[in-house]
Design a protein around this nucleic acid. Sequence first.
DNA 1: CTGTATCCGGTACGATACTG
DNA 2: CAGTATCGTACCGGATACAG
Lengths: 141, 141
Amino acid sequence: MRHIRVPGIMEVTVSAAHSPAGAETCDVREALDLITDKWSLYIISNLGGGPRRFNELKRVVSGVTQRMLTVSLRRLERDGVIIRTVHELMPPRVSYRLTPLGSSLLQAAAPLIAWSSSHISDIADARASYDRDSSRSVDIA
Amino acid sequence: MRHIRVPGIMEVTVSAAHSPAGAETCDVREALDLITDKWSLYIISNLGGGPRRFNELKRVVSGVTQRMLTVSLRRLERDGVIIRTVHELMPPRVSYRLTPLGSSLLQAAAPLIAWSSSHISDIADARASYDRDSSRSVDIA
DNA sequence: CTGTATCCGGTACGATACTG
DNA sequence: CAGTATCGTACCGGATACAG
């Protein structure tokens, strides 16, 4: 494994040790940006069940527009996460599937996805609580 | 655990079973949006090592502006992920720490963070390769 | 030290129309 | 079916100045 540049970011995986060094340039963002857009995580998770065609994805990734699906798929392809395969048929048929890199990404993202789905109500409650008290009730030490 | 609305999104955690149902409204996004902004994940990961003060975070989260740090912290506080504590001192001292919910989020995100840092070069290679061949060499079945 | 207020630009995203 | 092209906009995030 490569050396990590961002202090604190690896504390998670190793332990809770305090990182003494100052922050330098941040390489990790390059990879993290991969999934900090609106659709990538949903597309990837849907490809986890096997190859999908364009319109299959369009149907199952609720709310995505044709344009954004195309843009997202192109980007994921460029990043080596998915493979685009054109079947020479009429009507045209294009399928997308995860690369090994993509599969490993999906596995890594799975806990976060699971967390999200199981803590939706916690977050909603926290927001409601925050907005209700919105004004005072700050935590004073 | 609650029932999941987005087909495919849970295929990951359970198995690779194909989901038959169509897509409905997407609740998971609500929670996932928590970390699809530019700074939250970095802030949270830095708070994994214990409470931090405002300027500590500002130093260690490289590149963040004062404004965005404030905005991000407020949002995370509203979502119940962190707690803001004001110490009545002069000069003022404010510290931030993870809530139990925040800790669980960090744990869930840890694999993804680790994946990102260990696959930076893979992604860079894929991009270089994609850009080099940019024009044909499509995958024909 | 820990913020808030204001301005402002880039771009992510959506809507719509058109194409091989 | 699987896209492209074009246009419009909301908003994220940076820069800067100011404040308790």
